[in-house]
Amino acid sequence: MTFLAAIGAVVLGFLASIGRVTQFGIETVSHLFRPPYYPREVGHALLQIGYFSLPVVGLTTIFTGGALALQIYAGGARFSAEAVVPQIVAIGMVRELGPVLVGLMIAARVTSSIAAEIATMKVTEQIDALVTLSTNPMKYLTLPRVLAATLVMPVLVAVGNIIGIMGGYLVGVNSLGFNAGTYIRNTIDFLEPSDIATSLAKGAVFGFLAALMGCFFGMQSGRGAQGVGRATKSAVVAASVLILAANFILTQLFFAA
């Protein structure tokens, strides 16, 4: 019986947290339609999440694009299909790897910092202080971060896609012997506008999830340094898993018609 009870407790706890996250997400979005707003905080979050993530996004995608080109060339050579490198790199980056990799890097870089910051604020009573100063923490802390991440992630994904394709191009032209003009023409000809639109849409969803998880676990944080550590860990794990799950669902939705 205790064994069954333990399983039940885990399942119930899991369902309860899904409920709490959903409630938290709905409340966050609802503040979008209820003043007051804090545009300064949104601006600050845009800068932190967007601009300062550019180096990490660029580095991640350029190496991935390069490796992708090498793998496709090696794999394609087995049935004399080496020439498809530009097309597959473009499709692979834009449809899947761009959004997912940028999403995961944002989960590592932004979700963790949001969770740790808000958890520390909670532990040091700064969240309580906000309330006593007639400022709703959901409006002042959560909404600006979630909004900024949702808005700026498509831009980061676009930048990541371009740099990733450029990584493939550099490898393709410099070491695999592709003609530069042909490589670029093949890439452009093969990509559909819908590929790009879905890529950016994925980015927006991943940004929303990454920031929401950071805020949610930060606000739920327990006491002390241990509480902050646990909140940060849970936020990054939840954001990463949710991004990968959402990616599968969105791919199914967009491409499996």
């Binding site: 007051p36 700064q126 202080a129 100063l133």
Partner: peptide, 27 residues
């Protein structure tokens, strides 16, 4: 109400005067 918290609970992303004037800068 005004409240003095045990650890101060000052907002560490804001300067001292922005902390003190927090209520006067918004709302």
């Amino acid at each position: 109400f005004g409240m003095l918290f045990q650890g101060g609970a000052l907002f560490d992303s804001l300067t001292v005067w922005q902390n003190v004037a927090f209520r006067l800068l918004r709302g």
